[in-house]
Write a protein that binds this DNA or RNA. Structure first.
Lengths: 228, 228
DNA sequence: CGGTTCTTTGAGGACCATCAATACGCGTGG
DNA sequence: CCACGCGTATTGATGGTCCTCAAAGAACCG
């Protein structure tokens, strides 16, 4: 019955290849929690007692300093966080809050570390996941340092376009103020930025975005496979 | 005699715990190369055929897009790069160039991946290194997104202060234009920024920086253990 | 010592943040 | 069903930060 409850995460890359024994150890001390929207689940600086996995819903990782706040990334189903803190047994560097009602699996960090040492397949999966997240962060950094806010916005829209099956009508998955923070700009500036992109074939109506001239937008945003 | 040549890296965290057999495999196909200063060793987009380790000297990781360039980090002796690309067998996301005459060990990525699968101690060391780099990048990101350029500069000086044994006379380890790029600003702005920090107890003479009022600088920069 | 590169300083302008006010959207309760 | 209240989104005005361009000074190197 325990395996039953955790069936969903069993299929994710991080756990797909682990042995049944390992999975049993990992889930033995684990539990599942349902969070309401807008709930701060973890706070930066706290010890990383659990590895978290978003089973469904939506979780934002963000950070704060000196009264300011910035959104780092948004996680959806079957995403893990924050693996590095768990592995190194160090405090979280980011806080996490739910954006929607979310179901989250929590595995005690100790169990993760001990199975990591005992099961080579799990170790490989961990390294894979870590590398993936690391590289995603580097891409994010390049995006921030090499592009203007308008270019970041344009490429973000193109990324949504690709993710949502190359449709020209795109739905923003998060609130604009959070998107603004993620892109390193203010909500006001995002609003103006979306208007500026009209000159490059982008039309906006609320959460809907319409790409009227994909070629123009692409020419402006210059997406790059080493960033996006 | 092969172990002889690679004695220096044997003591670094990544290799300290691996078995002699594993180390022999890792170094069998490896070689050491001496690079002159200002030499581009690897270019982003290329396949990651080797794991690189800076044995001595100084290497800058940077990235480019649309004619712009940005410095990501600077590596000194016994630093590895770029591990994640090696593990995932993906193209480099960053380029690397020497800033000084440097001696670099290059281990074929295939050997790294095969020893990684066979030697659990090496796997642990890899995960440790990956986590460390990942967390460093997150800190970097927080620094960029949560602070103004002047605050970043102030905290950078404080970091040097700590690293150089809490002396009040600090030596900049890299050129100012590269520091500017690392901090996400232009050389002109860095120059002006250093002047602005006079108001917070910082005096500059060329590559030398003198902290005249540590308390004032600290009060201004507000260093944070979750960022710096 | 001459040439190159880096650094600094100044002027101007682009970009972006802040503040303020209005409009919009949405859920709640009357 | 509508009115209300709350949070979000937009728009305008303003100012600050930061980049660009240009030129002069300083450091480095052959």
């Amino acid at each position: 019955m325990v395996p039953q409850r955790f069936e969903i995460i069993r299929g994710t890359p991080l756990f797909a290849d682990v042995s049944d024994e390992s999975f049993e150890i990992l889930t033995r001390g684990a539990y599942i929690q349902n969070f309401p929207p807008n709930m701060e689940m973890i706070t930066e600086g706290e010890p990383a007692d659990f590895l978290h996995i978003v089973e469904n819903g939506c979780v934002e990782l963000f950070c704060q300093w000196s009264g300011r706040e910035s959104s780092i990334t948004t996680l959806y189903h079957n995403s893990t966080f924050i693996l590095a803190a768990t592995i190194k047994n160090r405090p979280y560097l980011m806080s996490a809050r739910t954006l929607q009602k979310s179901r989250v699996v929590m595995i005690p960090s100790e169990d993760v570390r001990s199975v990591f040492g005992a099961d080579p397949d799990f170790a490989i999966a961990i390294v894979d996941e870590l590398s993936r997240c690391y590289r995603a962060t580097i891409r994010n950094m390049k995006n921030l340092k090499l592009r203007t806010s308008l270019e970041r916005l344009g490429n973000y829209i193109l990324k949504l376009h690709r993710r949502q099956g190359n449709t020209l009508t795109i739905e923003l998955p998060i609130e604009k103020r959070r998107l603004a923070s993620y892109l390193g700009m203010t909500p006001e500036n995002l609003s103006r930025g979306l208007n500026s992109l009209k000159a490059h074939g982008v039309e906006v109506q609320g959460q809907q975005i319409l790409i009227e001239d994909l070629e123009a937008l692409t020419k402006f945003a210059k997406p790059d496979y080493l960033i996006d």
